[in-house]
Each structure stands twice: as C-alpha cells, then as structure tokens.
C-alpha cells in the first residue's frame, strides 16, 4: 500500500468531529433555533419541528452521562473484541454513540448514568486505503 497520497495530519473519523488546526478537537452538532433539537451532521430541515434553514453549528460538550451500553464480544472479522458500545447524553444536549474506554468490560463495573468525558485519540491504528491516519472520539469515566 502506498502512502504517497496520505495527508500529513490525521483526519477526523466522522464529519461531526472537528479538528481545528490551532485548537482542541470537539464534536459539532447542528442545533435547531426554533425547537432546540440537536443533530449530528447537516440536513435541510429540522426533522423534529420542520423549520427550514434554521440549523446552526454548535460545539457540543466534552462531558456527559452514560445512558446505556452493551459489551460487544462478537463482531465482524478483524474487529478486536471485547469493547463497550456506549450511548452518552452530553451536557447541554446531543446524544452520541462511541466506545467507552479505560474501564473493565464488566457489567458489575459499569453504572447507568455514570459521568463520562469525551477524549480524542488515534482511531485504534486504523488507516484508509490511502494510508491516512484518523482521530476518533472515545468516552472514559469522569469524576
């Protein structure tokens, strides 16, 4: 595989993960002015209230609460297990799914509602066809 086309800086794993050249990474939501619904990714109309052209980019919080999770022990070929798939409600709005890390994958150790923080790290060494490296977001227990 040739690295000739790879860009110098890592790329975001998803479009709603922003990597400002001179700032901290963050997650971006699209917030509807009239109703306050928050979406990940752009759309033409708010699918909650129907407002047109009323979505604005908003910076989502780096802290939240674990809503629910599953501990995945079997996945597709080549995907390392186990991992904790977590649904997190961020402070100030927005719900995001990601891996919960730095905690044992054991239901005894994981509590619904536990505070978590968003951290930004290399995407488990995964590279695309051009050899680009990626940054992803993860959740970890917070105090």
């Amino acid at each position: 595989m040739s690295n000739a086309k790879a860009s110098a800086a890592p790329l975001p794993a998803v479009p709603y993960l922003k990597l400002p050249p001179d700032g901290e990474p963050y997650l971006e939501g699209q917030k509807c002015g009239p109703c306050g619904a928050i979406f990940l990714g752009e759309r033409q109309v708010c699918s909650k209230c129907g407002a047109k052209g009323a979505l604005e980019a908003t910076r989502l919080a780096n802290r939240g609460k674990l809503h629910v999770y599953s501990i995945v022990h079997r996945s597709f070929p080549g995907i390392e297990v186990p991992y904790i798939s977590a649904i997190v409600d961020l402070e100030g709005g927005g719900t995001v799914k990601g891996n919960l890390i730095n905690i044992e994958p054991d239901p005894e150790k994981i509590a619904f509602g536990m505070p978590v923080e968003v951290v930004y790290q290399d995407a488990l060494g995964r590279r695309d066809k051009e050899g680009n490296a990626y940054i992803a977001y993860f959740f970890q227990p917070a105090s």
């Binding site: 794993a13 998803v14 995945v72 996945s75 995964r126 990626y134 992803a136």
Partner: peptide, 15 residues
Amino acid sequence: GIPREGLLGSGTMPA
C-alpha cells in the same frame, strides 16, 4: 474512510 464498527461503538444488531 475507515470502518467505524468497534471504534465508535457498535452497529451490530445484537448490540
């Protein structure tokens, strides 16, 4: 891009 399964949680039906 890159596969998201096991990176950003799971999209498998059992999960």
